[in-house]
Amino acid sequence: MMRPTDLHLAELNVGRLLAPTDDPRVAEFMAALDRVNGLGKRMPGFVWMMEGSGEPGKGNTETKIGGDSQYVSNLTVWESVETLENFVWNTVHRQFYERRQEWFEVLGSMHFVMWWVPEGHKPTLDEALERLDHLRAHGDSDHAFGWTYLKEAKLWRSRNCGGQAA
C-alpha cells in the first residue's frame, strides 16, 4: 500500500510491563522514557504524541488499558512511513526496542498497528485500540496494518528482528 495524499500515519504500540512502573525491574526503561519521547518529538516528520500527565519519567504510562496499570501504550502520528521508520530504526529508540524483552511480557497477539489519518487528526486511544482489534481479527487491510503491508517500509525490512511486530 502506498501513502494516500494528505494523510498522516498513526501508530499504536502497546505492551505489558513485567512489573509495576515503580519496580526496579523496569527502572531503566522508565528512566529513558523522557529522553526517547523527547527525541521522537524533535524528529523530522513527527506530528503528534498522546501524552500522559507530563510528570517526569512517566511518559504515557498513566493511561491504562483495561484497568491494568502494567499495560502501557504509545500512540503517535507521523508525516510518513519513512519518518516513523527513521525514528524507530535510526535512533536510540532502536536500542530500547531491541531490549524490550527485558521489560515487557511477550504478548500472544499482535500489539502494534498503523493506519492513515487526515492531517490534523489526533486519534484517541479508543480509536487506536479499535484499529488494533480490527488488525487482530482481519489481518492487514487499508483500515489497519503492520509494517509488512507498506511497500515503502524499507528500514523495517532490513533492520527488524525476524519480522516481529514493532
Rank of each mutant, 00 (worst) to 15 (best):
M1N: 02
R3S: 11
P4Y: 10
P4C: 02
P4W: 09
P4Q: 04
T5P: 14
L9K: 06
L9P: 11
A10L: 07
A10Y: 10
L12V: 05
N13S: 12
V14A: 08
V14L: 13
G15C: 02
A19H: 14
A19R: 14
D22I: 06
A27V: 12
E28R: 15
M30I: 15
M30C: 13
A31M: 09
A32Q: 14
A32I: 07
D34V: 10
R35F: 14
K41R: 14
R42M: 08
R42N: 00
G45M: 02
V47Q: 05
V47E: 07
V47F: 01
W48V: 03
M49G: 07
S53V: 06
E55M: 05
P56G: 06
K58S: 05
G59I: 11
G59F: 09
G59Y: 13
G59Q: 09
N60G: 10
E62W: 11
T63M: 06
I65V: 15
S69Q: 11
S69D: 15
S69A: 12
Q70L: 09
V72P: 14
V72N: 08
L75G: 01
L75M: 00
L75D: 00
V77K: 03
W78S: 02
W78D: 04
E79N: 07
V81I: 15
T83S: 15
L84R: 15
E85V: 00
V88M: 10
W89S: 02
N90M: 05
N90W: 01
F96T: 15
F96E: 01
Y97Q: 01
E98L: 09
E98A: 00
E98T: 07
E98W: 08
R100A: 09
R100C: 09
E102N: 15
W103F: 12
F104N: 13
F104V: 06
F104Y: 15
L107K: 05
S109P: 01
S109E: 10
H111P: 01
F112A: 07
V113K: 13
M114Q: 13
W115G: 02
P118D: 05
E119T: 13
L125F: 04
L125C: 07
L132R: 10
L132T: 10
L132M: 05
L132C: 02
H134Y: 12
H134E: 12
H134Q: 08
G139L: 09
G139Y: 11
T148N: 04
T148M: 00
A153L: 00
W156A: 03
R157T: 02
N160M: 00
G162R: 00
Q164I: 00
A166W: 06
A166I: 08
A166P: 00
